[in-house]
Design a protein around this nucleic acid. Sequence first.
DNA 1: TTTCCACAGAATAATCATTATCGTCTACTT
DNA 2: AAGTAGACGATAATGATTATTCTGTGGAAA
Lengths: 143, 143
Amino acid sequence: MEYNTQPLEYFIESCRKNNLKVTPQRMAIFQALVQDGSHPNPEIIYNRVRAKHPTISFATVYKTLETFEKFGLITRVTRLHDTVRYDPEIEPHHHIICVKCRKVINLFDEGLNNLPVPREVTSSNHVVDYSVHFNVVCEDCNN
Amino acid sequence: MEYNTQPLEYFIESCRKNNLKVTPQRMAIFQALVQDGSHPNPEIIYNRVRAKHPTISFATVYKTLETFEKFGLITRVTRLHDTVRYDPEIEPHHHIICVKCRKVINLFDEGLNNLPVPREVTSSNHVVDYSVHFNVVCEDCNN
DNA sequence: TTTCCACAGAATAATCATTATCGTCTACTT
DNA sequence: AAGTAGACGATAATGATTATTCTGTGGAAA
């Protein structure tokens, strides 16, 4: 179990490279994220950070995480978290997702439908389905 | 371009099988979803349906879509739409997502990191990255 | 050193998406 | 005819996120 994939020194270095100031709050937010592999949401991070910085505000957490993501210091699991997106397609398929305009296009591909599922996945979980998310910048957004 | 993957007759049949009443509103909601491949959110569907059913309410649209999904008539692109989930991992990796408790676990797998990306994806898009989402019921939720 | 300025942070309001509640209606049972 | 469950509409409530505004601070420039 190795969570500390991004040691603090690397984080600080990355901030410097991007002209981001390294503040105690930012370090705390980053550490709250790195401390485990739980993919926390802003609320959880906020609560963790409050232990050491009781006056920090929600907005700061949101803005900081957004900034980190913008500069590639962290990622988000999916970029489609703003609203539910429905699909009438119920057969196995995959998705092309434009990270700018959030357009979603279905992708049907036999090869992708038959990926070898790692044992790590099947060993302790019941797999419902899977789908490959291609995060792209689409033609329309590329101009 | 083939969107009508689920003709209306099949929809009606599926409703009957699941003891769901087939109402004009439900047909309209389903057709608003099937009419194109745009993966609309509830707001868009609401606006489309209002053309024929001006008195329909937002709540009905939400509840109906939820019902459809529950019975497997439609799907959602991702089940992590309720809140942003951050990840300190910036190297290519994949996700195991429990559809019940929404736990997310990173998955590192060389094979999955080197999938052949279909030409359909690369031809008109700039691929930022991709990630395989395994939707599962995790050990904890399986009891 | 002093002044200036941009960024960072805190507090708070506002917005947007979603869910819950409640009353009504209707088809179907008893 | 009365009862019941599901469906619908109206609306309130909640929860997540974003915007706004003000204050502070550290370093660049004078």
